[in-house]
Design a protein around this nucleic acid. Structure first.
Lengths: 136, 136
DNA sequence: ATGATAATAATAATTATTTTCATTTTTCTC
DNA sequence: GAGAAAAATGAAAATAATTATTATTATCAT
């Protein structure tokens, strides 16, 4: 199941691109971002490597937003906020993650919990401001 | 935006089907379930109405599991558990939902929070038992 | 009953993602 | 360093879920 992954320039570039942003981009974004410096990059390669990184726990998926999967170069568990208006995904890194949550579910329901996701939905600051502006 | 003043048999059947199960089914499941009694039902109608119900707050989406969106006839906020092995989605209705979570994020980050999702991932009881069995 | 219009079935289209396969790159061995 | 084996890639085709289109049917106020 665990297979050895060789080095490749494309692979390195894809991981670097993802880790260089906090926007939780789509595969398409990574592809478009690398296009100028990697003209012969294929979108399939981006998908292939993002899936590989995720399987290896190097990155994580934030889930599907507006039909597209969003990736996070930070594999450490943390909360996210998703704007219902513009689809932006924000980190909530300082948010007090309850580590005992998993334990509680384990004990109370007899379920083997691996991890959990806590995602807030609402309207981001920029979209709030835009709304207020539109009402004037 | 969308007003649904009119009644329709298909619409009622779709909502009834979803609310009659706790399996958090896919649109396809609702379609196949209604097929025997509604032979001329279209899958597009199921999608259309599930989206309508969600927009109106009558149902909620649990998110995308294994590439397919899962729906919940219970619109009241509650936690879910998703089995990594079989994809089952379970309710955690008695779990102590922190209502102040949204408030905390609102105050700490200045974000207008509408709601949040708390989803646990792990292995359900049945799949745990199957694993244990396989090791013998 | 009728007419306006929403809802539907059937199908086509769309869109994100995955697979295929011939070619290229990387790594290993000498 | 050269050559072979294995893995990675690009390009295109395939897949799969969901949405849009269009002609038809159902609902409901009148």
């Amino acid at each position: 199941m665990i297979r050895t992954a060789r080095y490749s320039k494309k692979r390195e570039a894809i991981l670097t691109a993802l880790c260089s942003t906090t926007t939780h981009p789509t595969a398409e974004w990574v592809y478009q971002t690398l296009k100028p410096t990697q003209p012969d990059l294929s979108l399939a390669t981006v998908y292939r490597n993002l899936n590989l990184f995720r399987e290896q726990g190097m990155i994580q998926s934030v889930g599907v937003v507006n039909g597209r999967e969003r990736f996070d170069g930070n594999a450490a568990p943390h909360c996210h906020f998703i704007c219902q208006t513009c689809g932006a995904v924000l980190d909530l890194p300082e948010f007090p993650m309850k580590k005992e949550l998993d334990q509680v579910v384990n004990e109370q329901y007899g379920l083997r919990v691996d991890h959990h996701e806590l995602v807030f939905h609402g309207v981001c600051s920029q979209c709030c401001a835009a709304e207020a502006e539109a009402q004037n």
